[in-house]
Design a protein around this nucleic acid. Structure first.
Lengths: 183, 183
DNA sequence: AAAACATCATTAGCCACCTAACTGTCAGCC
DNA sequence: GGCTGACAGTTAGGTGGCTAATGATGTTTT
């Protein structure tokens, strides 16, 4: 699912050239930014290729994963599934989006909505046996693909990468400052 | 534009735990994979926040950037703009998608379609003055935001990051092998 | 020259994402 | 008891992706 980023990244010398015209352009920052988005886009596309073999989009896969995790976590009692609101929060999408995803998953028989008897505003979403079977059959290939994608990096390099990414991730929200939040 | 990835990444110990159940799960690969997608998602969201102030989606911005670049490159002669096919290729989207993007950009007066006199199948897409003004006014803030996003990394760290990402990027296409390409 | 093929742009229909508005339910308060 | 507000989930409408099919135009082959 392309972010519509430039597919061919500019060479560093071009960035240096462009920096002459745009004093705000920081070549090393720009290069890191472009490579980050480009690489993750490519990785994402590879994963989607695998999921597509199972007729599953990345969004639907995320929901199934969350439900599978919840199914593991219960173990003890007959805890119902997760609510659409919980799923939406965990996945970082709007509730209306989750409604649509659950709609199609339910249509395909992979999940089921169950009313909550205590609070009639709430629903529980649970994996059906078919959904559970599907996700269990996908996981091994999914993990293999992750491993293959990261194979060019040593374990040490992966740690370095995670550390660098984490610095950026933690700091990103600070860049959201609106120009004039009246404060 | 969320990829519907889990918003809260699992802790490393959880990955180790899960690896007991799924022998294919490589914890360090999984961690790197999740952090890569999560971070780029966050960075992308920050950038979209800026673009939204200009009523521009990430897709539309990409098109305007490509056209702006083309406008710079001509310089010498009255070279027409780019064709929709070139734009789609450069942006990595389907041609139909580019048709839709150009539609809305043209509707908003930011680009213009011009017929190609030599080959009547082809169109040229060019920035209008309004489009050019818009993109020129956005670029400085866009560059500032890139710099802010990468501010937590030193120049040295950025080089390291780019190097690691590049290894993954180059290798990613090899992971696309379909199970049985009959070869 | 005519027919077959390739290519460009568009259209139509699907999915996933968003925000905003709506419906039904719960909980508190008069 | 009956308001009022908060909250869960859905619905409605818009945007941007995709694929597949179409129509118009070039190109190649016969």
């Amino acid at each position: 699912m392309p972010l519509l980023l430039l597919k061919d990244l500019p060479r560093y010398e071009c960035l240096l050239e462009a920096a002459k015209e745009f004093p705000d352009l920081d070549p090393s920052a720009c290069e890191a930014y472009l490579n980050l988005l480009r690489t993750s886009d490519e990785v994402h596309a590879v994963i989607e290729g695998l999921l597509a073999e199972y007729q599953i989009s990345s969004g639907r896969f995320g929901v199934l994963m969350l439900l599978g995790r919840a199914a593991n976590a219960r173990a003890c009692g007959p805890v119902g599934g997760s609510t659409p609101a919980e799923l939406a929060d965990a996945a970082g999408v709007a509730r209306a989006t989750m409604t649509g995803l659950v709609d199609t998953l339910e249509r395909d028989g992979l999940v089921r909505r169950e009313p909550n008897l205590e609070d009639r505003r709430m629903m529980s979403v649970v994996l059906t046996p078919a959904g559970n079977t599907l996700i269990r059959s996908m996981l091994p290939k999914h993990f293999q693909l992750m491993a293959a994608l990261m194979q060019p990096l040593t374990v040490e390099e992966r740690k370095t990468l995670v550390g660098l990414l984490h610095k950026v991730l933690r700091h990103a929200p600070d860049c959201n400052r609106r120009p004039s939040p009246s404060a």
